[in-house]
Amino acid sequence: MKVKIKSWNSVAIWKWDVPNEEVCGICRVAFDGCCSTCKTPGDDCPLIWGECSHVFHMHCLLRWLATEGSRGQCPMDRKAWVTAK
């Protein structure tokens, strides 16, 4: 039997490069989900890594850093937050 491909559609998935089933320490939602204010995971609700290696939903971390009480510190180790490049 000869088959001639006339057209094809590709499907791909992507995931954040974080261990499975891990949750954001701030909102307790999976990294593959989104923060409590977003509706769709992925590019619209990205993750953010610190140089300290801790990771959060970006929106969750920015809300924390915007509070006076945060003093600009990582919620995990309380060292000055520096976003990893």
Binding site: C27, V29, C60, R63
Partner: peptide, 14 residues
Amino acid sequence: MSMALFTKRLAKEL
């Protein structure tokens, strides 16, 4: 906006 985080997180904790 903040209500969502507040209630969702407390529901999870509970």
